[in-house]
Amino acid sequence: FCWKESWDIEKNPMASKGTPLHGPRIKLIEKAQNLFAETKEHLFESKAAEEHAKLLRIQHEIEVSTKQAIFMDSSISDTIRTCIVLGNHRAAMKVRTEFKVSEKRWYWLKAFALSTIRDWDALEKF
């Protein structure tokens, strides 16, 4: 029963996608997270919702600091790639630690990102 209710709420933020008002959206996702947390079976969903809200916040921060509105709604991996491509290694590192991105995935992302900008020197170094 709680399952369905939380899906309905989770669906709302999807509908509000693309609007500049992210505050209410994050609130809704957090509400979904709490609903998921009420039952034991939905621990995974609850965690995912938590991470989603966190990601939106971080993306917002990066957009403010880089003055480029290209991060919102891209995935964690895409965010890291974009950061590296833009040469913003500090932000990339931050996303990595915030979301405990594994060594393996990190290497693939970095390798792809560096080869997109043809930074062969950096690629060789790491």
């Binding site: 965690k47 995912a48 995935s75 964690i76 991996s77 895409d78 991105v101």
Partner: peptide
């Protein structure tokens, strides 16, 4: 794997 998918392709794939 579910977590890695959400991280790589986006949280909308929860659905």
């Amino acid at each position: 794997l579910r977590r890695e998918i959400l991280h790589s392709y986006g949280f909308e794939h929860m659905f």
